[in-house]
Simulated assay, not measured.
Amino acid sequence: MKRAFFYAVSSALLLSIMNAFVKMLGQGMPAAEITFFRGLIGTVAVLGYMGWHKIAFSSENRGMLVMRGVFGGLGNFLNFLALAYMQLADASILFQLSGIFVFIFSTYILKEPIPNGAGKWLWVILLAVIIMIKPWSYNDFHWYSLYAIGGALFAAAAYTTIRQISQSGHHSPYEIMFYFLVSMIVVGGIFMWQDFVWPDTRQWILILIIGGISVFAQFFLTGAFVATNAVVAQFLQYIGVFFNAFWGFMLFNEWLSWMTIAAGVLMFVASVMIGRLKEQHHVSRN
């Protein structure tokens, strides 16, 4: 559990830093293009590392590895779209819905049992989401929040797939990362050609920073889901909301509304309680 905690918190910190740079870059570059370059840099780095350490690719579970990659690539693209147009904290809170989606997927796909008492906390999270997106007001409704929710859904599918793949015990985290990064190249390449912007010097620097940080973040993230229960690993990353809020305030002068704070607190408390119930149930079974 300690190793999973370290991996999850490390990935949350690195991803929050990456999100800040993505937001900077997203002001003048399409999200698809950022997705493409992140995948390209990461793929080169991972292949180089695997070649240097003679880490071989497995012939097993290739279908699942491809699914993990496609889900992750789509989720990353939608997240980048949301980051370009939303406050970092707002987008980050909605990204954490992936924990709820992981909970649902792990229950019905991985057959991990639902702990008693989890239902009421799911309703609390639904209330938090409604507060965040404000569907009752057309003027206040942020359409890009739907991209953040969609990104959370695809990310959860990817995380659940990682957990299922890891149960076979035959795949290196770097192999799992490789399929994800290649899928980012494909997804980004499909959507970027119509609005392609050739990067200037500043943008190239940001692209390289994003690519480098994302490799380490993805390693820690994959390690967290390999090391522990999928739901627990996802909820451990909730500290990323606070990291993102800090960068949003420091770098973009973003202030949180009371509704965002209320929604974030509700979602955080409910998510922690579900994770705690899940972990207690896991311990009691063993």
Score class of each variant (00 low, 15 high):
152 A>N: 06
32 A>C: 03
183 S>M: 07
193 W>S: 06
241 V>I: 15
73 G>R: 06
210 I>V: 14
29 M>E: 08
72 G>E: 03
180 F>K: 00
169 G>R: 08
75 G>T: 10
1 M>G: 06
180 F>Q: 11
265 V>Y: 15
39 G>K: 10
141 F>Q: 02
16 S>P: 04
113 P>G: 08
102 V>N: 10
134 K>E: 11
274 I>G: 10
228 T>Y: 05
284 S>V: 08
62 R>E: 12
283 V>K: 09
242 F>C: 01
257 S>W: 08
64 M>N: 13
85 Y>E: 13
100 I>E: 08
94 L>M: 07
37 F>V: 05
11 S>C: 14
134 K>S: 14
139 N>F: 15
88 L>E: 13
71 F>H: 06
251 L>E: 10
170 H>N: 15
89 A>P: 05
183 S>L: 01
34 I>V: 06
250 M>I: 14
193 W>V: 08
241 V>Q: 09
60 E>A: 15
63 G>F: 15
201 T>K: 07
78 L>E: 05
170 H>D: 10
90 D>S: 12
215 V>Y: 12
47 L>H: 07
258 W>I: 14
257 S>M: 07
133 I>W: 04
196 F>G: 02
41 I>K: 12
2 K>E: 10
22 V>I: 14
97 L>Q: 05
166 S>C: 03
10 S>C: 03
15 L>E: 01
195 D>V: 04
280 Q>K: 15
280 Q>G: 07
217 A>P: 13
135 P>V: 01
129 V>P: 07
199 P>R: 09
129 V>A: 13
59 S>C: 00
126 L>G: 07
28 G>I: 12
59 S>N: 14
228 T>G: 06
90 D>C: 09
277 L>S: 03
67 M>T: 12
217 A>T: 12
81 L>I: 15
108 Y>K: 03
208 L>S: 13
1 M>I: 06
160 T>C: 10
182 V>S: 11
22 V>E: 08
17 I>P: 04
46 V>T: 00
198 W>I: 08
106 S>Y: 05
141 F>P: 00
247 W>S: 01
229 N>V: 05
143 W>M: 09
258 W>G: 03
186 V>A: 06
20 A>C: 05
236 L>V: 02
118 A>W: 05
74 L>I: 05
262 A>S: 04
284 S>R: 13
224 A>S: 07
71 F>E: 01
166 S>F: 10
178 F>A: 11
183 S>Q: 03
246 F>S: 00
122 L>I: 12
158 A>K: 07
132 M>R: 05
102 V>L: 09
231 V>P: 02
92 S>V: 09
285 R>I: 10
6 F>N: 01
234 Q>V: 05
267 M>N: 07
83 L>N: 11
24 M>S: 14
209 I>M: 10
150 G>L: 09
203 Q>A: 12
247 W>H: 01
10 S>A: 03
24 M>T: 13
131 I>E: 02
193 W>E: 00
211 G>K: 13
219 F>P: 00
232 V>G: 02
212 G>C: 06
230 A>M: 04
48 G>F: 15
29 M>C: 08
22 V>A: 11
17 I>S: 11
211 G>L: 13
193 W>M: 11
227 A>V: 12
